[in-house]
Design a protein around this nucleic acid. Sequence first.
RNA 1: GGAGAGAUGGCUGAGUGGUCGAAAGCGGCUGACUGCUAAUCAGUUGUAGUGUCCUCUAAAGACGCUACCGCGGGUUCGAAUCCCGCUCUCUCCGCCA
Length: 430
Amino acid sequence: MLDLRILREHPDEAKQKLARMKVTPGEIDHLLELDVQVRRCKTEAETLRAQMNAASKELAKAQPEERDAKRLALRSMGDSIKKLDDERQDSEESLNQILLTLPNFPDDRVPEGSSDADNQQIRAGGVLREFSFTCRPHWELGKSLGIIDFDRGIKISGSRFYVLQGAGAALQRALIAFMLDMHTVQHGYTEIYPPFMVKQECLTGTGQLPKFADNLYHDAEEDYWLVPTAEVPVTNLHRDEILEKAMLPLHYVAYTPCFRRERMSAGKDVRGIKRGHQFDKVEMVRICSPETSDAELESLTANAESVCTALGLAWRTMLVCTGEKGDFNAIQYDIEVFAPAAKGDEGGEWLEVSSCSNFRDFQARRAGIRYRPAAGAKPELVHTLNGSGLALPRVMIAILENYQNEDGSVTIPEPLRPYMHGKTRLEPQK
RNA sequence: GGAGAGAUGGCUGAGUGGUCGAAAGCGGCUGACUGCUAAUCAGUUGUAGUGUCCUCUAAAGACGCUACCGCGGGUUCGAAUCCCGCUCUCUCCGCCA
């Protein structure tokens, strides 16, 4: 959520910045009109209420015979106040609705653009593997290795679900453990095991609600929402808290499954395990003071890149353009790894395995996360950041396709072997 | 799932219709005393919004007003206090990995 005060005091500047995120000036004007109404109703009601409070005190001291007349006068005053309050509430609700869906100001560095063709590559690592044979897509490998069961996934849960079995399930578990260890031991993160279901306020806090309700699963009877990413429970750990400056920055890492409806992507990426309703992810979350958040984003992104490097994958980091980035972050880096057969006969594809973003104070304002810059000083909003470190299915795709051998086996990347009892290869099933 | 108890300021805890933004204690801050520390004494100490004054402006400050006693409604001229709904916590019983 943007600071209403900034919109009010610098409307032209705000309009300019938000125009890059496809917000029309008219929307801002409408919002500011509502704001004027809210504040007018508020001051009028407060003035009346002050009069009423004073008169009410006099009533207590008044002679008995005067009381009824005074009481009647006060009652009508009360009615006018109620009217003003109702009016204010209506305007306030509309205003909040708009404010909660309005995008964040994009950072000046974010390139203009409407598709991923407009993203800018800013870094890359690893080497693209040259194949001496025709490489096969992961869904074929998954079947022949006996580690991904698509048919039974569909049988028990429907489309966009799959079952990992045997070494496939173990490989995923190995990846999770490997990533968590890397971030905790080498990068100093604190590991969190959060609930996978959260209350509505958490999703409002990080921004998924109300705008992206479409993409979420929730319980019909109770206020439980399945997390679409660990960003939600972990960022909300400190909702409505005032943190001491000495506690910052906070670096958290958490493994969770993620649940998404993917209604927006109907028909897209239906082949294989690239886009399911349920997937696993190791997520990094940082909470820091404002002046450090730019640097925090760089090191967060570097942490995610180092996982790709450790796994021996070819990766590239993209600065995501205005049209493709999340609405609520100020700046976003996507890290992609290359999967040589992910498009089947059409060849390879760069797969997004991580998205690292700085939200500045946007989530902090929604979620009420503040810190005290100095002892006794007024609390100020923190900055929040998060980034995948990494998303599992796509890493699995990249490993299967990049590490495949001509005989149909797949070599297990070295750093994962200790997590798989020393196993070095996945062998095709007879 | 059943029964009961509770939710008040940073913490403990009093408060059953106006004199309550709220006693008292603890903690915090300031000062005095004191070789130092500790102790003692005195004063002070919630948050947010908004107005006026001061000022070139801003900050800071001064003086007001409004809201906030788990959350949301209601009764009343007036609610921490009465009524209704909800949430959460604790205790006991049942069930369970």
